[in-house]
């Protein structure tokens, strides 16, 4: 419908071009014709001279079979998490680990300013009161449109001072890619549809990946959270 709106405008522009060029002289025509065809031929020559391997292999996308383990890990993630066996699930990786000492009896969990924390935060009470908080950041593979971003995503930062635990999410990882759609008049006669770039995607959605910040806290540590920060303590859900 959008293109239907632009159609008259484009038609008008082209009509004007046709009108303005009808008086072209033979000389002008020759320059134009030779110039344009030369540029096009050059473009085709250059295009076929570009080696395929020049294209970034980082932009390889995962296939379904490659991701089977990761998808299973996704399915199992929350069950395993709340059953306390997240570390044992195949396809769940440890992104980073911290060991923090807390002297106070009250722990406040905050984020930067008033931001929330994108990750789920789950705490498990230890048998002891050793004053140590063990934090592990578990993640499955982080895949968006088939691209694996697990490595690219920066780790969280943890700061603990005076009974306040700051969990700082990393900067959003931004990636821009440039992609071509196969021309309509070619894709019409092709098996798949080259129009939708990620049409071969047989993943359940455009992206997947789960993560959790898993804390083991001393048995009697009291935990409070800042607004916007959610923390579950295993066995203490309301």
């Amino acid at each position: 419908m959008v293109s239907l709106f632009f159609l008259p405008i484009v038609a008008l522009i082209i009509f004007a071009i046709v009108f303005l060029t009808k008086k072209i002289t033979s000389k002008g025509f020759r320059y134009f014709f030779l110039g344009y065809t030369a540029v096009l031929c050059l473009a085709v020559a250059v295009h076929y001279a570009i080696p395929e391997k020049n294209f970034n292999s980082d932009l390889k996308r995962l296939t379904y079979s490659e991701s089977e383990v990761d998808l299973n890990a996704m399915d199992e993630f929350y069950d395993a998490l709340y059953e306390g066996r997240i570390a044992d699930v195949e396809g769940v990786y440890v992104k980073s680990q911290w060991s923090l000492e807390v002297e106070e009896n009250l722990l406040q969990v905050v984020s930067r300013d008033s931001e929330g924390i994108p990750s789920t935060i789950v705490a498990e009470r230890k048998e002891t009161n050793d004053g140590v908080i063990e934090v592990t950041h578990y993640t499955t593979k982080r895949v968006v449109e088939g691209f694996d971003f697990t490595e690219q995503i920066q780790p969280y930062e943890m700061e603990l001072a005076d009974g306040v635990l700051k969990i700082l999410p990393p900067e959003e990882y931004r990636m821009r890619i440039v992609a071509f759609q196969t021309d309509f008049e070619i894709s019409q006669f092709q098996e798949g549809d080259g129009r939708e770039l990620f049409d071969d995607m047989d993943f359940p959605s455009y992206g997947f990946g789960e993560e959790v910040i898993y804390m083991k806290i001393p048995q009697h540590l009291q935990v409070e959270t800042a607004p916007g920060v959610y923390l579950d303590i295993l066995g203490e859900e309301e």
Binding site: P118, S119, R142, V144, E145, F147, F149, Q152, I153, P169, P170, E172, Y173, R174, M175, R176, I177, V178, A179, F180, Q181, T182, D183, F184, L197, Y206, G207, G209, E211
Partner: peptide, 16 residues
């Protein structure tokens, strides 16, 4: 597309 901590921007070109 923006999913937790990942933002993917795709610039499409075509001969359409």
């Amino acid at each position: 597309i923006s999913v937790d901590l990942v933002s993917l921007t795709v610039s499409f070109y075509s001969g359409d």
